[in-house]
Amino acid sequence: MSTRLHHLISLAQLDRACITRLLDRAERMRDASLHGTRKLDLLHGRTVLNLFFEPSTRTRTSFELAARRLGADVVNFDIARSSTNKGETLLDTLHTLEAMHLDAIIVRHRETGTPEFMVRHAMSGVSVINAGDGNHAHPTQGLLDALTIRQHRPDFNNLTVTICGDIRHSRVARSDIHAFTALGVRELRLCGPESLLPEPDDVPQGHFTEDFDAAVEGADVIIMLRLQKERMAATLLPDESAYFERFGLNSERLKRAAPGCLVMHPGPINRGIEIAPDVADGAQSRILEQVGNGVFVRMAVLAEVLGR
């Protein structure tokens, strides 16, 4: 993957060198833009479209900020007022948008494989960036999580990372797993109730466990995931108080982790279900750093796929 990317659909095909290059570029973007206070002009004359078929706060806003800070024009596609509500197919929508001479489409969709479908059927040279598809991938979240960890714990080869929660339905977990594995993390623990863990063939990396206390023991990084209620059958919905009792990260459990363990969460947070409020807002929390890093990672990705 030494060549420049034209699309970003998943981290599964990216090697350590490519991921490191994107993380390095994100840090250069942060410094060059004075932590976002100064606009760069790398993408002047380029047009970026946000095509979000699912709700989003962090991802959509940070992609828009990233594109604008690089000097691009940004169009936010309003699904609620679009012809998709009149029965227009995704393929027709794609070709209609392409006819308006876009340079990049950032797409989020509930159906797994939608960004790849758009790459296969695009008739122009438009770049496609996956902002989350089904439970498949969320590559820029994986990159920003890796960047956040690297800023505090740069040697992945000596890290124990625990991911806990609804891993079965989480596209974030899959992208994190790809990123951390490529970067050489020493130990990756995947924890949750059996019904919310993926099949081993689906996620071959990592050690699976239902024992959260054991999964937290000595961990350098703990990433908590919310329950993906919109993607799971009603039969899989756990009792929230019982779930927090077994799999919630509270201050007592955090004491089992390594000193200075980083606490992370991709958001949105369900306080008191997967994480206690005092931990989410505590000294070891890096949740808001993740949000801030999201802008610089997405600047790096846009510059990679669209930069002249």
Results as ranks from 00 to 15, higher is better:
Ala276His: 09
Asn130Glu: 05
Phe52Gln: 10
Phe117Ser: 12
Leu225Asn: 08
Val301His: 02
Pro266Val: 04
Ser127Asn: 10
Ala12Gln: 14
Ala219Tyr: 01
Ser56Asp: 09
Ala137Asp: 06
Asn250Met: 03
Val107Cys: 10
Gly307Met: 12
Asn85Glu: 10
Asp41Gly: 14
Ala26Asn: 05
Leu97Phe: 12
Ala257Thr: 02
Ala104Asp: 03
Ala122Met: 14
Asp15Arg: 05
Ala17Val: 13
Arg271Tyr: 09
His207Gly: 00
Pro154Glu: 09
Asp213Val: 12
Glu187Met: 10
Gln13Thr: 13
Arg60Leu: 09
Leu262Lys: 06
Glu27Phe: 00
Pro154Gln: 02
Phe247Cys: 01
Arg46Met: 10
Leu196Cys: 07
Asp201Ala: 15
Gly248Tyr: 03
Leu5Ala: 06
Gly294Gln: 00
His178Ser: 13
Val126Pro: 00
Leu40Cys: 10
Gly248Thr: 01
Ala122Arg: 15
Arg231Ser: 04
Pro259Trp: 00
Ser285Asn: 07
Arg25Asp: 14
Ala234Leu: 12
Arg46Phe: 01
Glu199Arg: 14
Pro277Lys: 11
Ile273Gln: 11
Arg226Thr: 04
Ala276Cys: 06
Leu227Lys: 03
Ile9His: 04
Glu98Arg: 10
Phe53Pro: 00
Leu51Phe: 13
Gln13Val: 11
Asp24Met: 12
Ala12Gly: 14
Ala17Lys: 12
Glu194Ala: 15
Gly282Leu: 03
Arg60Asn: 04
Ala131Gln: 10
Thr59Phe: 02
Asn76Cys: 13
His178Gln: 12
Phe117His: 13
Phe52Ser: 07
Val107Gln: 04
Phe156Gln: 08
His136Thr: 00
Leu65Glu: 08
Asp201Asn: 12
Pro259Ile: 06
Glu64Tyr: 10
Thr3Asp: 12
Ala234Val: 12
Ile273Tyr: 04
Ala104Gln: 04
Ile269Asp: 01
Leu102Gln: 08
Pro268Thr: 11
Arg38Met: 15
Asp78Gly: 11
Leu254Tyr: 04
Pro204Asp: 09
Gly142Phe: 05
Asp220Met: 01
Gly218Lys: 03
Gly206Cys: 07
Ile105Ser: 08
Ser62Ile: 08
Ala137Trp: 07
His35Gly: 12
Phe77Gly: 05
Leu236Trp: 07
Val185Gly: 00
